[in-house]
Structures are given as C-alpha cells and as structure tokens.
Amino acid sequence: MKRLFLAIAPDAAQLEQLTQLQASLDGEGRLVPRDNLHMTLAFLGQCSEAQQEALSESLARLAHQRRLPTFEVTLNTLEHWVKPKILCLKGAARDPGLISLFNQCQRLAQQLGLHTSEHSFTPHITLMRKAKMLPELKAPSLSLSGHALHLYHSQSSEQGVLYKVLASWPLTAPKA
C-alpha cells in the first residue's frame, strides 16, 4: 500500500517565488521543503497496487482523449489554517478547467474506493506546517498554470516526508 495524491507542481519560476515568500516567513513552524511544494487536487490515502494501476489507466485514457484541461489560478492570499496548523498561499477556484479537473480527480478516487475530500475545494500551496500564527506580510500574487497532473507517493523518511512523482499526464487546452 502506498500513500498517494494527485497534484500540480509549480514550475521553476513559481518555485522561486514560493521559496522567496517562505524566506520572509518569520513564524514558528516548519517550512515545507522546496521539492515538496505543490497544489493538491485529490488526496487519495492508502492505495493498493491494483487501485494505483486502475487510476493510472483511467488518467492515461482521459489524457489521450484530451479531457484533462489546462487552467490558471491566482494564489494571492496568505492564510493560517488553525486545525491542520498550516500556513498556505491560497486563491479561488474560478477557472472552469481547474474545477473540472478537481471534480474528475475526486470522481476517480470515489470510483476506486479511495479517499475523497469532505471539504469544498480551495486551491492552495502549503508553505509551512506546525504554524502558530499568520505573519503580518503582504502575500505576493502567484499565477499557477496547470500543464501536467502528477501522481505523487508520500514517503516517510528520516529526513521527513518526501514526495515522489510516480506518473504524469499532460493537461490540454480545450478545443476552441
């Protein structure tokens, strides 16, 4: 069994912006390592080999049919979520492509008997864990474009949690 999730990875320029933002965070907490920064679309929980295969096949088919849409989302609000104790950069899901992609990921998870979100979708990137408060800081505006959907394996290690990309599928612009 592997602990898996579907997410979008920031590109190099976006990663640079995010790490600069992290550098300005002076709060108690643990910064998320640069290589772990991502925007989750579906946390799937523990997956069997068969579930992972079925998920990969479904996503490959959707990608081949050009049914995994590209999108843009602006993350521009710094927020402290008390219960999970995280500090994140969040935005609003307005792009129909993003909403469609989120819904497809949740539907696939449900069909395969995997974890589905009980919360409404808030696009965000977690910057810090074990955060105690919201720093007084103006949040930058980060425009995140989705060009590929990644299946990540969340692995615990002595260095902390590592996120490893197991598979990726291209997102395509809808035909005009």
Rank of each mutant, 00 (worst) to 15 (best):
M1Q: 13
K2S: 13
L4E: 03
F5Y: 06
I8L: 13
A12Q: 15
A12D: 15
A12F: 09
L18V: 07
L18A: 06
Q20E: 11
Q22A: 10
Q22S: 08
V32M: 13
P33E: 09
M39D: 09
T40S: 13
L41F: 01
L41Y: 00
L41E: 02
F43C: 10
L44A: 10
Q46H: 12
Q46Y: 09
Q52L: 08
Q52T: 15
A54C: 05
E57K: 11
S58N: 09
A63R: 12
A63H: 12
L68K: 13
F71L: 06
E72L: 11
E72Y: 04
L75I: 08
T77M: 08
T77H: 13
L78N: 09
L78T: 10
L78V: 10
L78S: 10
H80M: 12
W81A: 04
W81S: 02
W81Y: 05
W81N: 04
K83R: 13
P84N: 00
P84E: 00
K85F: 00
C88T: 11
L89C: 09
G91H: 02
A92N: 01
D95R: 06
D95A: 11
P96L: 05
G97Y: 02
L98K: 04
I99S: 04
S100D: 10
L101G: 07
N103P: 00
L108N: 00
Q110I: 00
L112M: 09
L112K: 05
G113N: 07
G113R: 05
L114P: 03
H115E: 14
S117G: 12
E118L: 02
H119W: 05
F121R: 07
F121C: 08
T122A: 11
P123T: 07
I125T: 10
L127T: 06
L127A: 06
K130C: 03
A131Y: 03
K132T: 15
L134Q: 14
E136K: 15
L137N: 03
K138Q: 13
K138I: 12
A139F: 08
P140S: 05
L142C: 04
S143I: 15
L144Y: 06
G146V: 08
H147C: 01
L151P: 03
Y152E: 01
H153R: 10
E158F: 06
L162T: 05
L162W: 02
Y163T: 00
Y163P: 01
W169V: 11
W169Q: 07
W169H: 07
P170D: 01
P170N: 04
P174Y: 01
P174N: 07
P174R: 04
